[in-house]
Amino acid sequence: MHRIFVIIGLLLTLLLPMSAQAINDECRAKVDTALAKEQRIYRTVLFGRKEAKDAPIGEVRYDKNGRAFYKSGPHTWTHAGEDGEIYYISPMMDNEAELDSVPVDQGGADLSPAALPRSGILDVKRTMTSELIPYLTQAFRAFTCRVDMVCYRIEESTKKHSGSGSVELPNRVGGCIRVDSEEWNSIPECQFAGKAGGSQDTADSVQYCQKVGDSLVQRENEILKMIVEYDAAYRSLLQFAGVFDEFLQEFRWTITGSIRKAASIIGSLGRIPCFVSSCEEYPPR
């Protein structure tokens, strides 16, 4: 009997964290989703976004609900998830594609259908990489701000009472522009106030967001460096290649002509010996 209680107790203890874990998993999942979206938007700013009909087969885009769509045909975008398959055609995809979490009038990127195709910073032609650096750094700074904002949002959400829906949050992150938008309201799954074990979850969520956010930023930092290096090399090559292409076209005939002439002579030159007798002086006249 005593043994059964112990076992049940153990089971209970095992169960409890699971449920708490379950709750925290949701918050973590939200953290992941939010951060992933920021990263995607950031990347879109860097690389641009084509219209859905021009995208190649194999491209993946997210819609406003966070669902991933795969372009499986020239006009078809497919989503296969828990909730079954959803199919968009390209114009619909454009309409449904996710937009920036920050509204356009508050400094966000305009990814509305009207603004497509949007060229990314790195798409700009006929500039040198050095000239793109300020924009890239600015985008990166915005990205770090957004990450901070996400974590701030999470943190603030944890202070809110669970059970109540999403509430407005004062959005104040040091060094970043204020953003007032519905998107940045609290996340219900992360509201732990008044919940048993809430402090634990709070700590966990906040910690998690910090950790993931930091590593994300750091990773993107490294990746950006690499991108810039590659871009610089690439643009230098393009500069040179353009001139060299011209050179090749113009000079091809001179080079090959000389080669042809030289080849016919070089072979014969080797056979001509030196006539020593012609090294004498001549008598004065």
């Binding site: 190649p56 993946v60 769509f69 499986s72 497919t78 296969a80 079954g84």
Partner: peptide
């Protein structure tokens, strides 16, 4: 894509992948 993601991971034929297939889609990105 059709054969391996869509057809096999939905409905009755749903193969229990550890990850929600919606989250597998980004791996198909080329």
């Amino acid at each position: 894509f059709q054969e391996t993601l869509v057809d096999t991971s939905g409905g009755e034929n749903k193969y229990p992948y550890a990850v929600d297939r919606g989250r597998i889609i980004p791996s198909f990105h080329i």
